[in-house]
Amino acid sequence: MYDNLKHTVLLGTLSAGLLFCATIPVLATTPEHQERHFNVKGHPVVVLQNIVNGRIEVKSSKNSEIIVGSTAVADKVAIDIEQVGDRIDISATSLATSSDPHEVEANFQLTVPEQTELQLRTQTGLIYVEQVNGDMKLQSVAGDIHLKEVSGYIIVKTTSGSLVCTQCGGKLEFNSISGGAQVLQPALTGINLMTVTGNILYDGDFIRTGVYSMNSGRGLVEVRFSGNDSFDLTTKSLSGTVDNQATQFLKPDSHTSRKEIRNYQKHQGTVGQGLAKVELSSYSGTIRILKRD
């Protein structure tokens, strides 16, 4: 009887121990969610340096506070958040040893006032910003960047990540090696897009007096304009092709009279009064010009 009881207790203890040991790694690898609130005044600045993988999502609210939500495995990623006046500094760094392949992740969800300046940087994972007005610098190595209804002086730099900018206002600068850029329904007064192998799509109106420059080394540069637009168009292509499907809307350029000596193809034309300036160039890719229905 006593032996049986002893055996049962021992078995129970062993089972509990095994269960505990099995739970520890699970707990250690389960991402933890944290949320912190910071009161701010005026136009705050958020600087987020995510040195590990992960998604950054930024949305706005009417409140004068910044909410930083983060999800990461506690013993693999160190998340530091500091407030200095109206600036919030956030950083996520890996705690893994340098010899290990560390595919660790930290995901952020930020809620900021509508008028906020952003400086966000991540390695992989999406950067998503919605309804924020303020200058922003967004950098990613392999992650894509999606912007919706944002405005300000927007600088986007990626190595291979692509940009999708929907209903953006202000000025946009994009620089990438293999990432592409899609600018949809914009209200931008100036853009400068540059990629080596990525594709560029601009689908929207050109604001009068705006300057729009789109350049791709080997990719496709496609512009879809509306019949109400007014812009001067210049295309330059070294060894690529220019697919102009809107020749009937393009009048011969009336603003340039100087003859140039050049080794590349150059086409010029004017839509409407030619108020905006649009320059498209490609080294060996295709330039396509379309009029929207």
């Binding site: 392949p101 595919e103 390695q123 293999s178 080596v196 192998t197 080294y283």
Partner: peptide, 23 residues
């Protein structure tokens, strides 16, 4: 970085830009 996705992207991009420079 020790991060395979990032490393691969960086090295691939270097090859891409090197090829383009050579061209």
């Amino acid at each position: 970085a020790g991060n395979s996705t990032v490393d691969a992207s960086l090295r691939q991009s270097l090859r891409t830009v090197d090829e383009f420079i050579a061209e």
